[in-house]
């Protein structure tokens, strides 16, 4: 059962933005609703107005624009996972999107909602981070671009000002060879939130000197985590046993999982993160 609210649907960013600004905390954006409705039902969110953005033109779909892929915020997880460009250029994102919820949830869950919900373990965010995604944020006053990594402020908190709507996600198609993988462990094999998820991407894997590594991990910090210190350490290195031992140390120093999580203990999360890291040393 939901406590009553007013439902409003707009067909332009401008109108939605103006309305959102006018009503501040009383108004809340609705995309697929798979987070919002759950929160309203739990009475963690008590909006007076629920502002549906699904009628806004141009927020949906995946387009290739020369060396870029532009994903509309309203694109669903299933659409992301099944898209040929995503499969071809961003397989780690495909895998992440495909693990989100179950088929029915993925039919409603949008990538924009996954990002804006601000969960530290969002399954599309972890892969987007290793691809250095950028987000375009729009309001009635115009647009701004931000690195996705700078978008997260804390659990459930993202960098959106009054009246701002996430419009697109921009990914640059790599013009160098890459190898990557998405990892995830959860309590059950069927639908479950991630106890830990992690993405690793290696650019130029076959050339030790040109190697660049990017790593992101979910559910180990208040925000989805890029482990820059580890990335720098590993880039340009040969993946030996000694390097692994040092890498492991750096990794563990960067993780700060919460005690008392119902999804996994800090011990288990760290153990699995180390194991996933070992993929680099076994497969590359």
């Amino acid at each position: 059962m939901l406590i009553p609210f007013e439902y409003i649907k707009f067909d332009s960013i401008k109108d939605a933005s103006v309305f959102l600004k006018e009503h501040g905390d009383d108004a809340h954006i609705l995309a697929g609703g798979t987070d919002v409705i759950v929160k309203i039902r739990a009475r963690k969110l008590k909006p007076k107005y629920l502002v549906d953005i699904k009628g806004i033109e141009g927020l949906k779909g995946i387009e290739k624009d020369r060396d870029k892929i532009v994903i509309g915020a309203l694109t669903t997880a299933n659409e992301v996972a099944k898209n040929t460009h995503i499969k071809e250029y961003f397989p780690v994102l495909k895998d992440g999107a495909w693990t989100l919820g179950d088929y029915e949830i993925r039919n409603r869950a949008t990538i924009g909602g996954n990002i804006c919900n601000g969960s530290p373990s969002a399954d599309t965010v972890i892969p987007l981070l290793v691809y250095d995604a950028k987000v375009i944020i729009a309001s009635d006053e115009g647009e701004r671009v931000e690195a996705l990594d700078k978008f997260f402020k804390g659990p459930g908190k993202v960098n959106l000002g009054p009246g701002e709507i996430l419009k697109n996600i921009i990914l640059n198609i790599p013009d160098y060879p890459v190898k990557g993988k998405f990892f995830r462990v959860s309590r059950v094999e069927g639908m479950d939130l991630a106890s830990l998820n992690m993405a690793i991407l290696v650019a130029n894997p076959d050339s030790i000197s040109d190697r660049k590594v990017r790593i992101s991990i979910g559910a180990v910090a208040p925000v989805p985590l890029r482990v820059y210190e580890l990335e720098e350490f590993l880039s340009g290195k040969e993946f030996t046993k000694e390097i692994f031992d040092k890498a492991k140390e750096i990794l563990l120093n960067n993780l700060n999982p919460r005690e008392g999580s119902l999804r996994a203990t800090p011990y288990y999360k760290k153990r699995m993160a180390v194991h996933y890291l070992s993929w680099l040393f076994e497969e590359i």
Partner: peptide
């Protein structure tokens, strides 16, 4: 393999929903 009611220090059931009280799914 997995079922347990988790009780906080204050005696509250922490996993009072199917988000966190996990039962086996068809894949388990």
């Amino acid at each position: 393999q997995r079922e347990a009611i988790v009780i906080s220090k204050e005696g509250k059931i922490r996993n009072d929903s199917l988000t966190d009280y996990k039962i086996s799914t068809i894949r388990d």
